[in-house]
Computed example of a mutant assay.
Amino acid sequence: MPNLYEDMVAKIFSTLFKRTINPNEDISMESEPKWDSMKHIEIIMVLEEELGISFRPESIPTLTSMAKILDEINK
């Protein structure tokens, strides 16, 4: 079953990183030079605001890829 949030999260990532990011792209802190600690906070804040969700504070440091973020959203 396709992830309900994949397209929305990819669109948010595209806006934040100023390039097209596909829903199935393997983007992470390791692969994206612009994804530093400040960008990480921005990603979390924008996702929470745009999707109307709240990440568990203890999970935020582990959300270092789009796949991990989608897994957490779906919990």
Rank of each mutant, 00 (worst) to 15 (best):
1 M>Q: 14
1 M>K: 15
2 P>W: 00
2 P>G: 10
2 P>N: 10
3 N>I: 05
3 N>A: 08
4 L>K: 14
4 L>I: 12
6 E>Q: 12
6 E>K: 08
8 M>K: 13
8 M>G: 11
9 V>E: 00
9 V>Y: 00
10 A>N: 02
11 K>S: 15
13 F>K: 00
13 F>G: 02
14 S>F: 03
17 F>Y: 01
19 R>P: 10
19 R>G: 08
19 R>E: 09
20 T>P: 05
22 N>T: 09
24 N>E: 13
24 N>Q: 14
24 N>P: 12
25 E>V: 00
26 D>T: 08
26 D>G: 09
27 I>Q: 03
27 I>S: 08
27 I>P: 12
27 I>G: 10
28 S>D: 10
28 S>T: 02
29 M>D: 13
29 M>K: 10
30 E>H: 11
31 S>L: 01
32 E>P: 13
34 K>Q: 13
34 K>V: 12
34 K>I: 08
34 K>D: 13
35 W>L: 06
36 D>S: 05
36 D>L: 01
36 D>K: 00
37 S>F: 02
37 S>Q: 08
38 M>Y: 12
38 M>S: 14
39 K>Y: 08
40 H>E: 05
41 I>L: 13
42 E>K: 12
42 E>N: 13
43 I>D: 00
43 I>H: 01
45 M>H: 07
46 V>K: 03
46 V>I: 14
48 E>V: 02
48 E>Y: 09
48 E>N: 03
50 E>H: 09
52 G>Q: 05
52 G>P: 07
53 I>L: 07
53 I>R: 09
53 I>D: 05
54 S>L: 13
55 F>H: 03
56 R>F: 11
56 R>S: 14
56 R>Q: 14
57 P>R: 02
58 E>Q: 13
58 E>A: 11
59 S>Y: 03
60 I>R: 02
62 T>C: 11
62 T>L: 14
63 L>R: 01
63 L>H: 02
63 L>N: 04
64 T>W: 01
64 T>D: 14
65 S>R: 03
66 M>I: 09
67 A>C: 08
67 A>M: 07
70 L>H: 05
71 D>K: 12
72 E>H: 06
74 N>M: 07
